[in-house]
Design a protein around this nucleic acid. Sequence first.
DNA 1: CGGATACATTGATGATTGTCAATACAACGC
DNA 2: GCGTTGTATTGACAATCATCAATGTATCCG
Lengths: 111, 111
Amino acid sequence: MGSIKAKIPVVCCAPVGSASFDERDAAELAKGFAALADPVRLHLLSLITSAGADGACVCDLVEPSGRSQPTVSHHLKVLREAGLVASEKRGTWAWYRVEQQRVDELKLALG
Amino acid sequence: MGSIKAKIPVVCCAPVGSASFDERDAAELAKGFAALADPVRLHLLSLITSAGADGACVCDLVEPSGRSQPTVSHHLKVLREAGLVASEKRGTWAWYRVEQQRVDELKLALG
DNA sequence: CGGATACATTGATGATTGTCAATACAACGC
DNA sequence: GCGTTGTATTGACAATCATCAATGTATCCG
C-alpha cells in the first residue's frame, strides 16, 4: 500500500481550534483544582473564608473538620502549596487566610 | 487532676463561624474539581469548549491531547461522570459538548 | 458478508493520595 | 530549665489514579 496518508474518507469533525491552552498553564491550573478536589479541604477553605480577613487559627479548624490534627495539617499544607491559602505564625498559633487572588485565577479559568 | 475540661487558658481564636458547608455539598463539589485536577482533562475541556455549541468529535481530541485513544476515552468518561461534559453519538462518531451549567456551579462555589 | 473505522472497556502497573499513630519542633508560662 | 500546648513532619498502609496494550463493540462502506 502506498504511504500516502489516506484520502480523507469522510468529513468527520469541524476543526476544533487549536485550544488556546498552554501545557504549562494546564499543569499549573490542574494543581490548583487538585487542591480543591477533596471535601475536607473544601470545608477547611470554607472555614477559613468565613473567618474573614483576619484568618483562622488551626486550633479552630481541627474539630469541625472531623479529622485528626496531623491530617488537617497535611491538608492545609496542600492548600498552601497550591497557593490557595497563606499561613502566618502568631506566637504559638498558626493563622491561615485565603489567597483570594489565586481563587479568582481558578475561577477565571472556568470561563 | 480534676476531670474538669480545663480553664480556657488563653483566648486563642475568633470563632470561625460554623461554615455554611454541607458535607454532601462538599463531596459533590470535590468530585467536580477532581475532574478538573488533570492537565489532560483541562486541555480536553478547552478543546471541547472552543469547538462551540456543536461540540467536538473524539477523533479531533486524541492527537492534540498527546495521549493514546484509550486514555483520552478514559478522561472523557471522567469528565462525563463529573457532569462537566455530555456525549452524543452521531453515526460512527461521538460528540462531546460542555455542560456549562455544571461549570458555572463550580465557579460559583469559588465565590 | 467482510473489512475498515471510531470509540469504549478490560487488565496490568507504577505513581499519587488520604489517613492516622508516633514523633519532632517551637513557643509559652512558671 | 521544665512541663504544657499548638502545629508540623515522618512512616506506614490502603485506596485511588493515569497510562498504555490488548481486546471488544458498533457503525459504516462496498
